[in-house]
Design a protein around this nucleic acid. Structure first.
Lengths: 334, 334
DNA sequence: TTGAAAGCGTTACCAG
DNA sequence: CTGGTAACGCTTTCAA
């Protein structure tokens, strides 16, 4: 992983510039950093030499000497998924108020990118928050004692702090609402991770069973609008009697909304749709999306706060969980 | 800008851990980095001591010694604006193929945050690409010779490379299309920067004049869906005769679409809407948005490629421009 | 298996 | 205004 291909050209250092300009290192430093205490001609000569040589200061050497700012790495799978960017926005805001900086790493939802990111991140930031699909032990082997806060990871963590999403009540309320509206054929467009049904699917199944409803009408969907559309089509082709769908998230729901329109099903009259996440996006579509909503910004903000606790050394034990509850927000689509 | 408030507690270094564990620094390093050549007991003792002291290695010291990866800083105003995340996604993809890493900085569209970001970024990355609202000279004073590529900045840059957006033809085509459809009262929802009309507004005005149309029906809008809605309401309240609007971007257009619905104006029958950017979002709303579209991913990718040219030292002169052309994509809304 | 010494590239602190 | 010397915290030889 080297920036320059082929033979490694020795890095140009401040010494090279000094030699070339016929001055000392310190004078070069002064010229480059706009300190006073330097002759105008000398400064220009140094600047010219630096430019001619293509000199770029080492950020590491500089950081070593200068005052250190706290920098947090935020790892998310996908920049194009508004859920993650909303979480990121929340984290950035919370970090800003502490004077911390956040750098965002997107892994393109690929395991190898995630590993690669994890590998370099240790030399870039002081702590890490984010979504990871790799195992805890793998995560630990990369982060090596660096403070870590997991976001929205399903399944309890033993070694890391995490911010978890509890949508059980919200999903139950969603199903109850649909049943109250007379729906008894309710499908779900789920999103599986490594062939595993999501925990949202579990919540849905449990809620459906409470009402004695068939909870087997499940189709797997890509985490995109197109994925949601395709999944809805598949579902309705197999089970045309379905009159309502609950989806893994709002992106999938929005895709389902669009597909319903194409199929000539009016929402919510012919098909009720309830998503999950409560994204801002839901308010832009027609009809506005009903959703089991959570405070995405808060999710990111909590991660930062938990990190602060970890870094202060005091407070919570290493593997400590905070919970964000999701609740049903009804709008036009159900 | 210090991470810990109050009295500055001296940083815990590898030496502290070594002393505490009764070994040398090198042994601590070995234990922490999982090198072989170390006794199991010793290793455990070191690890315990490190944990007890809350030791965290300095990323700068580490980076100074270890192999360096090329890291690019991408600065964008807003993570919640899909335009910027699409550009970012393009940049990330292009960087990935070079083995470079990209860290994303969001400035919340605030000048002070932009300055703050600029200030720390120099010790975090090897080069910078992005949107900046500050002046070129200010930018230069912060980046100090670090390679910089500007994205979508209006007005030609003399000192920096930039990737520019040329929408003149596209906007002309949009206006021509509206006129051909019989519209002769066409409004614009613009987005001004520091009270300055945008260049997209200039393109619109020029195109309108070509058709002998009143180009004065312009309202300023926030760069959000709500902003678009509000602006449309204002425009139609003052000029109810308007039958078509062109907007600064798709976000504003989507808000206008929603507002038109609320006002009981059917799109495109009672009001035609054409946006700018060609975001994926446009395909999710009803009716699908017509837009003067550009390849957002390519915009980000070109910035990375231009940076590569700059870094290779050869090739283009410092202030060199690449252009991305935008063209009219018609869909349901006009 | 462990430790001593030598850098990595930069800036800060004093002399001159 | 300029230059020497000493850090900054870590890893990497090379000996023991």
């Amino acid at each position: 992983m080297v920036s320059t291909p082929g033979a490694e050209p020795r890095r140009i250092t401040i010494n090279d510039v000094a030699r070339s300009a016929g001055v000392s290192r310190q004078t070069v430093s002064r010229a480059l950093n706009d300190k006073g205490e330097i002759d105008g001609d000398t400064k220009q000569r140094v600047l010219d030499a630096a430019r001619a040589l293509g000199y770029r200061p080492s950020r590491f050497a500089r950081g070593l000497v200068r005052q250190d700012t706290m920098t947090i790495g935020l790892v998310i799978p996908d920049l194009l998924n508004p859920f993650f960017t909303e979480v990121a926005a929340g984290a950035l805001e919370a970090a800003r108020s502490r004077g911390w900086h956040v750098v965002v790493y997107a892994t393109a939802d690929r395991a190898d990118e995630e590993r690669d990111t994890l590998q370099v991140i240790t030399s870039q930031v002081d702590a890490v928050i984010g979504y990871f699909s790799c195992s805890e032990s793998e995560l630990e082997s990369y982060t090596r004692g660096m403070p870590v806060v997991l976001i929205g990871r399903e399944g309890r963590s033993t070694r890391f702090s995490s911010i978890r999403i509890d949508g059980e009540q919200g999903v139950r309320a969603a199903v109850a609402h649909l049943v109250a509206e007379g729906h008894n054929r309710i499908g779900m467009l789920d999103h599986r991770t490594r062939a595993e049904p999501s925990i949202r699917h579990d919540w849905f199944t449990a809620a459906a069973r409470e009402h004695g409803i068939d909870a087997g009408l499940v189709v797997d969907a890509d985490q995109t609008a197109d994925g949601g559309g395709t999944a809805l089509r598949t579902l309705l082709a197999a089970r045309p009697e379905v009159t309502a769908v609950f989806t893994f998230n709002d992106i999938i729901a929005v895709g389902a909304l669009r597909e319903a329109r194409r199929l000539g099903r009016s929402v919510p009259r012919d098909l009720a749709v309830i998503g999950f996440d409560g994204l801002q996006l839901g308010a832009l579509v027609e009809p506005p999306l009903s959703s089991v909503a959570l405070d995405t910004r808060k999710l990111g903000a909590l991660a930062i706060e938990q990190l602060a606790r970890l870094l202060s050394g005091l407070g919570t034990s290493e593997a400590d969980d905070l919970i964000v509850h999701a609740e049903l927000h009804l709008s036009g689509s159900a």
